[in-house]
Amino acid sequence: MAKKPIQFQLNGSSKSVFVEEGQNLLEVLRREVGDLTPKLGCAQGACGSCTVLIDGEQIVSCLTLAETVEGASVETAAGLANGPTLHALQEAFMDGFAAQCGFCTPGMLVSAKALLDKNPSPSRGDVIEAISGNLCRCTGYEPIIDAILAAAGNGHNSAGRYSGSGRQS
């Protein structure tokens, strides 16, 4: 099958790869680019563990053709931390026991980031809506919802309050 060159931004740095026609973005990110943070949980758009942001929009990468991200900006959980400095959401997930097996966590964090980027002070309902496409079999969701609210400064932990700028400095 003919391979096609594509170029896109991944967490702020430029990537150029050859992709096969019909290859999905999840596979390209994991196998070609080597960003292993998006996880394969179903390949059917059902679980959300492959969630990434494309130009700020929450997308399931398993159902996205890789060639369609040409020129776009892709964000994954690998881009959340700034060097050793964790994102407020990551801190809140650690403090709030919002991960058990950790398999859904990168997708969950990306969905939460998409929410907070648009709405820095979400209600509980907004949070539930934002992660409604992400399945978690371990936590029962409540600690995740609480952690996202905490990161936004609506919970008990306002130390790492989300600045709304995408990255914590």
Binding site: R31, L36, T76, A99, G102, F103
Partner: peptide, 20 residues
């Protein structure tokens, strides 16, 4: 805190399929 929590929130926990 879980001892593996940092790996989980940074997406670096090594699940079997993360070995290339």
């Amino acid at each position: 805190r879980r001892q593996d929590i940092l790996g989980h929130v940074t997406g670096r926990s090594p699940f079997y399929d993360d070995h290339q």
